Amino acid sequence: MNIHPLDFTAMYGDVMGGNPDYDLLLSWWVPDYPSGAASIQLRYDSSVIDGGSNFSRYSSSEVDAMMKAALAEADPDAAAMMWGDIDQRIMQDAPTVPLFYTRSAFLGGSNVTNYFVPRFPSFQNYLKISLGE
Rank of each mutant, 00 (worst) to 15 (best):
S46N: 05
A69Y: 03
S61V: 14
Q41L: 08
K128W: 02
Y58S: 11
V112P: 00
T113D: 05
A94Q: 15
A78F: 06
I129F: 00
A78E: 14
W83G: 04
I86V: 14
A72G: 00
S47P: 01
A74K: 03
T102C: 06
S39M: 08
I49W: 07
A105C: 10
G52P: 06
I90L: 04
K128Y: 03
V30A: 11
G51D: 11
S35G: 03
I40T: 14
L26F: 15
A38T: 02
V117P: 02
L127G: 04
V112A: 01
M81L: 13
L25A: 11
D75K: 00
K68D: 14
P76A: 05
V30P: 00
M81K: 15
Y44H: 14
S46G: 10
A72I: 01
R103T: 14
S61Y: 05
F100R: 13
S56L: 05
M82H: 11
P98T: 14
G51A: 11
F123A: 05
A38Q: 02
L99W: 06
L107S: 11
L26H: 13
A37C: 02
V30E: 12
M67E: 07
E62N: 13
S104K: 12
R43P: 01
N125G: 02
L42T: 14
S110A: 07
P95C: 09
M91S: 13
W83S: 02
P95F: 07
Y126T: 11
F116K: 07
L24C: 07
A65K: 02
M66I: 03
N111F: 00
L42R: 15
T96S: 14
P121L: 04
F116A: 07
S46L: 03
R89T: 14
D75W: 00
V48E: 05
D32Q: 12
M66W: 00
S59A: 15
V30Q: 12
N111S: 00
S56Q: 09
W29F: 10
I86N: 03
Q124L: 04
R89L: 10
D87L: 15
S110F: 01
L71S: 09
I90M: 02
T96F: 09
D85N: 13
A70M: 01
Q92S: 13
D93Q: 13
F120G: 01
W28Q: 13
A74Y: 00
S56K: 10
M81R: 13
L71C: 08
D85I: 01
L107I: 08
D77C: 04
G52L: 05
S59W: 00
R89M: 12
Q41N: 12
E62L: 10
I129H: 06
D32M: 09
E73A: 05
Y22E: 05
M67W: 09
A94R: 15
A38H: 08
F55Y: 15
D50K: 11
L26E: 12
S46I: 06
D85V: 06
F123G: 07
L42H: 09
S27M: 12
S47T: 13
A74I: 07
L25K: 03
M81F: 06
F100N: 06
R89S: 11
R43V: 09
D85Y: 06
A72K: 07
V48N: 11
Y101P: 06
